[in-house]
């Protein structure tokens, strides 16, 4: 593994260098006045003028928007009767252009791997995954809403990243972790880090909060039906307003729905984000809705993340980024839900 030391200017130059002939995105600096057509709210294309400094904690919106875009065009068609191809579903050209995401945190990097479990055979996710390069920033400090360590990650973690950048005093240490990362750094003259610096980083990593699977293990051992019937869901469901603030900003929520949109005879079949909090989410064509009540929807969100997903894949579907905790209008806190679940006998 190559390890380099960069100053702020060298870091900015490197990132801006990439943006000369590639799409490079970063978390938006401050409140956005507009969004790019190719870029979701909360992210912006790297511009020459803004130095790459990040506030502590994860970006406002998660990295999933680059791998699981809102929306993804799956097929296109025309309904014009003059067109001989009328009604034929066509696959749009798959994007192959590389996209470099700079400034994601270890929690978001882990989320990409977690979502890859259900999306393993999903052609759209796989195409996006193959063209995405992730240059992450490790966390020197955890925010009050961060709990990545409790979910199996850690603030200094590098899992899922191509390049991991850690701030050390005034400069940055870049660990190049994959061949793709090497390709990106090969173009530039960089100063290798001193052994002492590498050791200091390793020391810091050792002393940072470590991935802990204790809660996962306990929850795995619990009977699903008992948790499902627990009394806590009633209270939670009563205060939840069933919005999409938690699931849309969550990096590990990956549900979608499919719709056709036709504008002046030109149609596209898109998949767009859905949320188990929405009443239409599980509505059957018969009109029956197995999750017709608010409480059932709230319960599903947590049971999916903390029980169903782990039963199937062995890991929580949550990376502890704390976005849902921060954004929930009624302060439903997944950490409290977890301890309540652990207390269910």
């Amino acid at each position: 593994m190559k390890v380099f030391r960069l100053s702020q200017t060298e870091l900015d130059n490197m990132v801006q260098g990439w943006s000369q002939n590639r799409r490079v995105y970063r978390p938006a600096a401050g409140r956005q006045q507009s969004t790019h057509a190719d870029c979701a709210p909360g992210w912006e294309r790297v511009a020459a003028s803004t130095p790459l400094t990040l506030p502590p904690g994860p970006s406002k919106t998660s990295v999933k928007t680059f791998l699981f875009p809102q929306p993804e065009t799956m097929q296109t068609y025309t309904l014009k009767s003059s067109d001989p191809d009328k009604g034929l579903m066509k696959e749009p050209q798959k994007a192959t252009e590389k996209q470099i995401i700079v400034g994601l945190r270890p929690c978001d990097a882990r989320s990409v791997k977690l979502n890859n479990l259900p999306f393993q055979e999903d052609p759209f996710y796989q195409v996006n995954l193959a063209r995405t390069v992730m240059v992450g920033f490790t966390c020197s400090a955890m925010c009050a809403t961060c709990f990545c360590d409790q979910m199996g990650g850690s603030p200094m973690g590098t899992e899922g990243l191509d390049i991991a950048i850690s701030q050390v005093d005034g400069s940055f240490i870049a660990e190049v972790l994959t061949p793709v990362g090497e390709e990106l750094t090969a173009e530039i003259r960089l100063t290798p880090a001193e052994d002492s610096e590498i050791n200091a980083l390793a020391e810091r990593r050792k002393n940072s909060p470590q991935a802990d699977f204790a809660k996962l293990d306990v929850l795995k051992g619990r009977d699903l039906n008992t948790l499902y019937k627990a009394a806590l869901w009633q209270t939670l469901g009563e205060s939840c307003i069933n919005c999409g603030a938690c699931t849309f900003n969550c990096p590990t929520c990956y549900c979608f729905d499919v719709q056709d949109e036709v504008v002046r005879g030109q149609g596209r079949r898109i998949r767009y984000w859905d949320s188990c909090m929405f009443p239409l989410y599980s509505l059957h064509t018969t009109g029956h809705n197995p999750r017709g009540q608010k409480m059932q929807r709230t319960r599903n969100r947590f049971m999916h993340k903390l029980k169903y997903f782990p039963e199937r894949y062995g890991l929580f579907s949550c990376v502890g980024c704390g976005r849902c905790v921060k954004d929930c209008p009624v302060n439903i806190d997944i950490r409290e839900v977890m301890s309540d679940l652990l207390a269910v006998e």
Partner: peptide, 11 residues
């Protein structure tokens, strides 16, 4: 422009 259509405002 930055609305994510979460509908928290509506709900």
């Amino acid at each position: 422009s930055t609305c994510i259509r979460c509908y928290a405002c509506r709900n």
